[in-house]
Amino acid sequence: MMAVALPALLILPLAALSLSWGDAGLAPGDVAAWLSGDPVAAVLVGSLRAPRLAAALLVGACLGVAGAITQAVMRNPLAEPGLLGINGGAGFAVMLLIVHPTAPTGQWLPVAGFAGAAVAAGAIYALSWNGGTSSIRLILIGIGVSALTGAGIAFITAFGEVSAVQRAMSWMAGSLYGSDWTRVSVLLAWAVPALAATCLLSRELGLMAFDDDTLRGLGLRLQLMRGMMILLCTLLAGAAVAMAGPIAFIGLIAPHLARLSAKPRYLIPITALYGAMLLLAADIMARALMLPAGILAPLIGAPFVGFLLRKQTHE
């Protein structure tokens, strides 16, 4: 119970803060007025702050769960969705779009981001297939493909028009600025089934740390399961990237935080809670400092890592 209580208790006040605090401060009563149809509160809370809050919670949950999947499939505590090429692919695609003089931008950036992420993840899966995949091969091919997309990004950074590069960098920093209900509802329709499916696979995700022979001996269809997990991870992390740009670190740290207290059975939902909590906190700070949330996620995460390191007693 502790495991659920901690992140949930942290989320509630943060959510209240996120709704009521801003250029025009609102008392909790005014937030409630939004629900009863007050027009001013409706604009401020209903169409600006509430969708941003929803986006932060959803994207954070997606990132955390995608991280938990990556760490399980790759059998590596340092793995994060970026290793599946998600961030590199999305970043490269978006950068191409931004520095291209005639290409449309605006609402196409999320589409390009998701497409780039999906293509990179698909390429990694396909290239590591050799009568089946394995954790180590996925990791190594992931490194190789990420190096290629990284080279593309580096090339554009070095030679693109400097103001376009800066715009691309601000997208790549990751931000929830400008979230609206349309995009949130698309994300909701997309991410919730994937999150639910991942929860149903909790048992199998926990088993991934066992060796291959034992797993198959237990009746697990290993290749099918790995493929499905990578697909889910791509859907979740890809959707998060499309919504908010690549936000690093939450996918790495949320599963570790959840593991401190959660029973293996509940690891996925609790990871989602921690991810949501971390990104919400980062976004509140981002609004205060007028910076992208992606930049602040590591700042928020650092104290938790300190705590994690203290708890880490065995190797």
Binding site: A297, P298, V305, L309, T313
Partner: peptide, 24 residues
């Protein structure tokens, strides 16, 4: 910091944190 000195996993996590922090 903490028990056991500089174990690889702790080093790696600390490095990941500081890298992300400085990059930010």
């Amino acid at each position: 910091a903490g028990q056991g000195g500089a174990t690889p996993l702790k080093l790696a996590l600390a490095g990941a944190v500081l890298t992300a922090f400085l990059a930010s």
